[in-house]
């Protein structure tokens, strides 16, 4: 049925008239449906070029009449999403943080949102599970440098620690004692600190260490070495060490001092997001 076209008189195959080196070209046209499909795709293509971004120019492509862009579509989706969650955000911002857990729906919203904020902005330093690293506090345990209540955590997230950008940033600065202390004094206080947390230490260095500690460290770390959350001074008696609890690590901390920095998030996250992540971190296990 779909053979070559024939001349009705001679029953010879119809040719296009093209002959080259004795070879004739038969006239085998495309089926009509095929041809119409081709025309349809051409029309479609022209329409597409007019309506959608198509021709690449120097800085960007022709915008198209519909003004479509995939970025614009994403922005629109995000806007819709934010609009839908606006009532929940408003409720979260006005609520007392401690009362949020009583509202199961709001709490679930805060936890899911907080987990997303945490993974996007916090996990780089504090770890995906919140267990931190050397120099980056573990958020799972019950030892907090600046306090572990919901309000304390929220304040830390808002203002950050020791950054120059926010005047409200939490600030403490332990001096680098290596600059003005004898090695013997540093040795003594290191062993005194080791003794505070019940680790192996040199008992002969203790008497000197106790004097050095009393003169230099007590004001922040306290007589019993339990630290002070108002000053951001770590508890020296527990087995949790931000920069390591070995003799060498403690000596380095005393001699050179450590000043970890956390950015303020109030310029990057909304108040609702900050509250979400505060609630999320608080329920990881260490919240006070």
């Amino acid at each position: 049925m779909m053979g070559e076209k024939q001349d009705p008189k001679t029953a010879e195959p119809e040719t296009t008239g093209h002959v080259w080196d004795g070879i004739r070209e038969y006239n085998n046209p495309m089926p009509r449906w095929w041809l119409w499909t081709l025309y349809a795709t051409i029309v479609w293509g022209i329409g597409y070029m007019i309506l959608y971004p198509a021709w690449p120019l120097v800085s960007q492509a022709t915008p198209g009449l519909l003004g479509y862009s995939s970025r614009g579509e994403l922005a629109h989706t995000l806007e819709e999403f934010n609009e839908r969650n606006a009532p929940l955000d408003a409720a979260l911002v006005t609520a007392e943080l401690a009362d949020v857990h009583a509202d199961a729906n709001l709490m679930e919203y805060a936890l899911r949102g907080g987990a997303a904020v945490y993974q996007a902005h916090c996990s780089q330093c504090h770890g995906s599970g919140g267990n931190g690293a050397v120099g980056y506090p573990n958020l799972l345990d019950d030892d907090w440098l600046w306090g572990g209540s919901l309000e304390d955590i929220r304040y830390t997230v808002v203002h950050g620690i020791r950054n120059d950008a926010d005047e409200g940033a939490r600030f403490s600065q332990m001096p680098a004692y290596g600059e003005f202390m004898e090695d013997e004094q540093i040795d003594g206080v290191v062993h005194y600190v080791l003794s505070l947390s019940g680790q192996d230490h040199d008992p002969y260095a203790l008497s000197l260490g106790a004097i050095v500690y009393a003169e230099n460290c007590v004001s922040c770390h306290g007589e019993d070495g339990r630290g002070n959350q108002a000053e951001g001074a770590p508890n020296l008696t527990d087995p949790i060490w931000l920069y390591g609890g070995s003799e060498d690590a403690i000596r380095e901390s005393v001699a050179y001092s450590r000043h970890g920095v956390m950015p303020n998030w109030n310029t990057r996250l909304t108040e609702a997001q900050i509250r979400q992540v505060a609630i999320y971190v608080h329920q990881l296990g260490g919240g006070e």
Binding site: G129, L140, D141, D142, D143, D238, P239, I240
Partner: peptide
Amino acid sequence: RSPLYVTMSDGSIRNS
């Protein structure tokens, strides 16, 4: 499993 365990301030070990 991230992390496997957490050391608490009193030295106890906690899993979640």
